[in-house]
Nucleic acid binder design. Structure first.
Lengths: 229, 229
DNA sequence: TAGTGGTCTAGACCACCTG
DNA sequence: AGGTGGTCTAGACCACTAG
């Protein structure tokens, strides 16, 4: 198990047990750090280490002066690892394939960049698993933010992978949704028109500047697994 | 900003800057804690605090004896808050509505429980936003794990909400996918048959015992936003 | 303004693992 | 075998905020 007989993990575990067993109920205050340190016979810093971990995971709510309480709405946080598409496919044991469909400069669409009509690189590509369509990628890359992308050979390496290695970013967001396959998409993904497709639209930024916006359309049958807890 | 002139957050920020500016490149080793402590003029524990945070976010990889290196594949972790459905709807400013469709005991389906054919409570319900269908919930609740659920009034409070308050869990998983609306689902969600629906299948456990398995089918147009970074 | 968590320190010992 | 991160300690000061 993840048990620990000593140290901050033991305290972490014991606090979790008390919450689980309703010794400390949601919304209730728990003793302060000094008190718990006395109870567990350790330094306050050790208690702090355990309670901080529980606060970071959303189990506890801590505020100076106000003290520590059990979170009222156990805000579940699901964590999702977003790998490079090639690795995602190879991890399933399938052979990875990649086909560049289209690549060219074009005026950037609305969302990309902030200062007027920037130039952008528009790339469409298909990722394959065991020679079968797996993911359709439709991407805009800001030339202002990543001019070097012109030197990349996007026929042999996906924009996804090149960007991960060469375009540092600070933050971004993803929007997940479901969409019906149109005729064009269906043909590329070897699906029937009308099939349900899992779509991810992701934007990544470096500070305020948008680096890239991408629409990822998965072949039918795709599902995304997330751990909870 | 999230800047900090002193303390571990300053070190956290400076390390991020060096990675971002490619002073330390992906896969490269960085100086050990003692060295950095000398450079920054602080205690080793302070450096440890900063580097540990970066390791937890996947930016650094740390191993005893081997040292600390910049993560090779910046494993993006997207965090998703899973609120109570009622709160999720109310946060958009819409009026929340709830309609219990069906509730009854039945032999548990395959995945639920581990020891033979357990009894389970099968609940189907519809969540509404501004009187319009928002989410169709089809849930199995293990009677072995949560016998008290029989005392709940699932006509006035959703199983979702009752479970969050009364059935502590330790872990679980969610699977996201896209599905085509069948006739029955379409009717309930006031959608056209053939529409693309966003589906979440979630299982939560308490230790080894499954508490509940639920299939959540969202009305067309639903999307889920996740922060990246 | 007093009490709480947040952080830092200097030192120490330990667990792990690579070379 | 020895160096690395992981952790603990005892004490101190600081930052925030409820009352």
């Amino acid at each position: 198990m993840s048990a620990a007989r000593t140290g901050w993990q033991a305290i972490h575990q014991e606090v979790l047990r008390r919450i689980h067993d309703r010794v400390w109920r949601p919304g209730e205050m728990i003793p302060n750090e000094a008190e718990l340190a006395r109870e567990f016979g350790c330094a306050r810093a050790t208690v702090n280490r355990a309670l901080r971990a529980l606060a970071e995971s959303g189990t506890l709510e801590r505020r100076r002066r106000a003290g520590t309480r059990v979170a009222l709405h156990p805000v579940l946080r699901a964590t999702l690892a977003i790998p490079i598409t090639r690795l995602e496919i190879e991890e399933t044991g399938a052979r990875y394939g990649y086909r560049l469909l289209e690549s060219g400069l074009a005026p950037a669409p609305g969302g990309l960049g902030c200062s007027g009509p920037d130039k952008a690189l528009h790339v469409r590509a298909l990722h394959l698993a065991d020679e079968r369509p797996y993911l359709l990628e439709d991407r805009w890359i800001s030339m202002a933010a990543v001019p070097d992308v012109l030197t990349a050979d996007l026929a042999s390496e996906s924009a996804n992978e090149w960007l991960v290695r060469n375009a540092p970013f600070t933050d971004g967001e993803s929007i997940l949704s479901a969409a019906v396959a149109g005729e064009a998409e269906a043909a590329l993904l070897e699906a029937v028109p009308g099939a349900a497709l899992f779509v991810i639209e992701r934007t990544t930024r470096d500070g305020a500047a948008v680096i890239t916006t991408v629409r990822l359309v998965h072949a039918p049958g795709y599902s995304m697994r997330m751990a909870v807890g």
